[in-house]
Design a protein around this nucleic acid. Structure first.
Lengths: 334, 334
DNA sequence: TTGTAGGCGTTATCAC
DNA sequence: GTGATAACGCCTACAA
């Protein structure tokens, strides 16, 4: 591979001048610039990014930690981040944290040891305290789908409370008043806030919150099945069900169908996240849109602005969910 | 950040010795090793991976090109590759090619310019010739889900013909003889081979292949819808449908239900790939397992063996698909 | 505008 | 077994 040195001697200029045309950050006369460019193309010269990184102390790489590499939710998130970053010539190093404290720590260490210029992480197992401590290090860290009060400027998050509110409100507007709720793991703030929104919608319509119509799930298909089973056994009547994410909604649908419910007539169900397959399942799932791809892009912009000094980027830290109406909610009595 | 130089002076040894204990590739006396290790931990020393890369001409990174960052198929693939590689301390740089020739080229260039030690790519828009030419460069390239005859040792692939055969055979064994087929884009060898397998199963059971019961799809949901619509309009009777992937099967199911088919009674459907949501849709989709995660791991092993000289890894280049029986096939007449 | 020279933090090749 | 010292390929004051 040709080096900058060979280019300089072929072009008859110095190393420094070649470097200048590569980075075009200093004035070079048109004439010499052309000589250099000609030499570069003749040699098929490509800058060695490793050497650039060592000398400039900038790797042009940002580390991404997601819970899983597969799965619709993180897929959208990664796609959003990567697209935005790559358009700026940066690359992503992606690693999964599996929602476990140890693995998340390890993943972060791994990314930092790779000299990433910044990290964008979605962690669920780590405490705010740990993350605040981490942020004192030399690598800037940004947080997806999480609010850390002391680091709010580094966070991109969804208004989950609003989402929970919208979901339940949609059900109420279809005439339902006996509404069951399968929540996410309550150690996750997202789950808590969605539930809070649910309660607000109920309160706003003078519907009392009924403890027997709430159960905590696991954000997975089985959580939906178990949750619905629990409610059915409990015998408290209900005509509608909100699931704190789409996977659980899908599980609940499967369970309902296995028990001869005709959907949505016998039970209205609403999900949360609007993951891709929500429109593939039957009946097509009414849900709350979670704009993860946009949020991913915004996180990338945040990095571009703060770390790579791209000016003129406007940052929104908070995103709003929205109702996606499809076929899984029926009017009560219809 | 502490450097190797500071460690050496604190430990009272030379640079070279510190380097030796870091890489433990040469004999160092226990006594000096301990001195060095003590100094390292006292200083909180972490080797600078960039400098290591420059000096050793090895970045410990492998570039991954997939068609999409989201989507169940590539999610599994990435997860498999990453898990295996990271266990060996390597990291992945992932970038999407969007199945388009230009973007795939660009993505590969991008990865190579990042000095990846090797590439694992899943490309659909690039020709064998181009890839063979590319393989003459200094970066070793491995191919997922593709057979390039001249580069077979660098390929990990599925026996798609067998998969196509198994799908149609399953239908036949349920009594079906009028079987429609929605294929994938025929410029893709995968699609061609699945179709070939379909024909073999038919021939083996003396069922003639009927042109009017074949249509080419796009591997997406809409392809399934359009395909089924086409068959329904054509009026050639059929009782079963094989779709060359699960997305199309899902689309076909949706379309069938919109036209008042009771599934699987009125129409048996089988998919291909066994992507995650195939078990979420209703009825649960019978399909052909495509072990992408295992194939991803194997591709990673191939890199570990050939590029990073891990001995004793056994490589399987070819993987077999298998039938996954669920609920979307009915016995004919039942 | 252009050139010189030192430095980025390691690894690797020699001697000893 | 250990220590100098020259790469690795580029960036960036500083000088001219």
């Amino acid at each position: 591979m040709a080096t900058i040195y060979e280019v300089s001697s072929l072009a008859g200029v110095s190393l420094a001048t070649v470097s200048r045309v590569i980075n075009n950050n200093a004035r070079v006369s048109d004439k010499t610039r052309q000589k250099v460019e000609k030499a570069m193309s003749e040699l098929g010269y490509r800058p060695n990014s490793i050497a650039q990184s060592l000398a400039s102390n900038c790797t042009n790489s940002v580390g991404i930690l997601v819970s899983e590499l597969h799965g619709p939710f993180f897929g959208q998130m990664m796609a959003g981040i990567e697209a935005e970053l790559r358009a700026a010539g940066k690359h992503v190093i992606i690693t999964p944290g599996h929602s476990e404290e140890d693995k998340e720590k390890e993943g972060i260490d791994f990314l930092i040891s790779r000299n990433c210029d910044a990290l964008i992480i979605h962690v669920e197992g780590l405490t705010d305290e740990y993350l605040i401590e981490l942020s004192k290090g030399k690598t800037p860290i940004y947080f997806m789908s999480r609010i850390i009060p002391d680091l709010k400027e580094n966070c991109i998050y969804l208004d989950n409370e609003l989402g929970g509110y919208l979901a339940t409100k949609a059900l109420i507007e279809h005439g339902h008043t006996n509404i069951a709720y399968i929540g996410g793991p309550q150690f996750k703030p997202d789950s808590q806030n969605r539930l809070t929104g649910h309660k607000r919608a109920l309160a706003e319509h003078k519907i009392p919150f009924n403890d027997t119509l709430y159960v905590e799930g696991d954000f997975k298909e089985t959580g939906g099945k178990k949750g619905l089973k629990h409610f059915l056994n409990a015998k408290t009547p209900f005509t509608a069900l909100v699931c704190a994410n789409d996977e659980m909604a899908s599980g609940a649908m499967t369970y309902a169908r296995e028990h001869d419910f005709s959907l949505p007539k016998d039970l209205s169900i609403i999900g949360f996240d609007n993951i891709i397959f929500s429109r593939h399942i039957y009946p097509k799932l009414t849900t709350i849109n979670n704009p993860v791809d946009e949020m991913g892009k915004m996180a990338a912009k945040l990095v571009l602005k703060n770390v790579y000094h791209h000016k003129d980027l406007i940052i929104n830290h908070s995103f709003d969910p929205a109702l996606i109406e499809r076929d899984s909610i029926a009017y009560l009595g219809k």
